[in-house]
């Protein structure tokens, strides 16, 4: 095991896949000479040159569409968005073309492209730069969406994403890039669609993903002090979701809290809550609780931003409600 940062794990995944398969290339703003706005492509331009590590103009719709076309043509594009807020400009290409070409052509064309970039709030970046947009993608049939929380997971999932035959969206955590963790020395991949139990417990299931894993693990510690033994599930992939992992855990704990950083309405958390409340209904001893960001644009001011986001305390409080321990 080596301890490396999340951003280094991304660079390793890209490097290994580019070594393995010469159809893989990386394109995005500032990915080559500057080595990525968040330094996720450190060393890649030097190693692979300008043919395969390409600085794009600020033309998101254009270079995302290029990725779709190049994937249809048989290449393996990795398209980096500087942040997912800017990927909104390219939603047309991802939703209308990447997600649908396999179906529209009845299998004649496929789009094995990866679209990746950071999502979520960082520190006081304001309304346009703090968004959790995974629901935009998780909603779309034909796409897969991974949201790894650890260096090990981002490396293994990004490698799977590059090898996948479908378009995969990899949403990274903007505040996770510096986070360090164990990464296996040997070659490995993590399959898309598999959740992981991050902490075992018997009293309540806490389901989350991406950077909320950390606040949720902290909440589990707070709950332990009060005698509540929480199980924490990191979905890691939000489409397709590992339904079995969620339902198995709820069958054991009979209580569930779904935690997400973003908006509550019509999102991933709502779908997970619906799954547990319907398919898992017979196992529940209490209504499913939800914790999420405020239902509004992110304010800039530090004090307001803090109030807008879930914390270990608000998560623990929801878990206590689910356990009827208010």
């Amino acid at each position: 095991m080596a301890v490396i940062a999340y951003r280094e794990a991304i660079a390793q995944a890209l490097r290994e896949e580019m070594e393995r398969d010469d159809r893989v290339f990386l394109m995005g703003e500032e990915v080559a000479l500057y080595q990525g706005a968040f330094k996720c492509s450190q060393g890649l331009y030097e190693r692979f040159g300008e043919k395969r590590v390409i600085d794009a103009p600020i033309s998101e719709a254009g270079f995302a569409g290029l990725g779709v076309g190049a994937a249809m043509a048989g290449l393996r594009p990795v398209i980096e968005f500087m942040t997912m807020n800017f990927a909104v400009l390219a939603l047309d290409q991802v939703i209308n073309n990447a997600a649908k070409i396999y179906s529209m052509s009845a299998g004649q064309f496929r789009c094995p492209a990866v679209f990746r970039g950071p999502g979520g709030a960082a520190h006081q970046l304001g309304a346009q730069h703090s968004q959790c947009l995974e629901a935009q993608y998780a909603h779309i049939p034909g796409l897969k969406v991974v949201m790894p929380a650890t260096p090990r997971d981002v490396k293994g999932l990004l490698k799977s994403a590059i090898r996948d035959e479908s378009p995969v969206i990899c949403i990274e955590g903007e505040t996770l890039y510096g986070l360090k963790g164990d990464v296996p020395d040997n070659e490995y991949i993590i399959p898309i669609g598999e959740a992981e139990v991050k902490r075992e417990g018997k009293d309540v299931t806490l389901v989350t993903w991406s950077k909320m894993v950390y606040a949720t693990l902290d909440a589990a510690e707070l709950l332990a002090k009060e005698g509540i033994d929480a199980e924490v599930i990191d979905l890691r992939t939000v489409r397709p979701v590992d339904k079995a992992a969620i339902l198995t855990s709820v069958a054991k704990t009979n209580r569930c809290v779904v935690i997400e950083e973003g908006w509550p309405w019509a999102g991933v958390g709502a779908s997970v809550a619906a799954l547990v409340s319907t398919t898992g209904f017979d196992d529940l001893d209490a209504p499913v609780e939800r914790v999420h960001g405020i239902d509004g644009p992110m304010p800039y001011a530090k004090s307001l931003e803090h109030l807008a986001l879930p914390t270990a305390e608000t998560i623990a409080a929801a878990a206590k409600r689910a356990c009827y321990r208010e």
């Binding site: 600020i58 807020n85 800017f86 909104v88 400009l89 006081q124 970046l125 304001g126 309304a127 346009q128 730069h129 644009p297 304010p299 800039y300 001011a301 307001l304």
Partner: peptide
């Protein structure tokens, strides 16, 4: 903007200054 906007979103309707936008273009 009462602290809601920040550096990238300075705007003042009174001065017909429409802002202040963070998405390039």
């Amino acid at each position: 903007s009462r602290g809601k906007g920040g550096s990238m979103h300075i705007m003042s309707a009174e001065h017909r200054f429409l802002g202040g936008y963070g998405i390039v273009g």
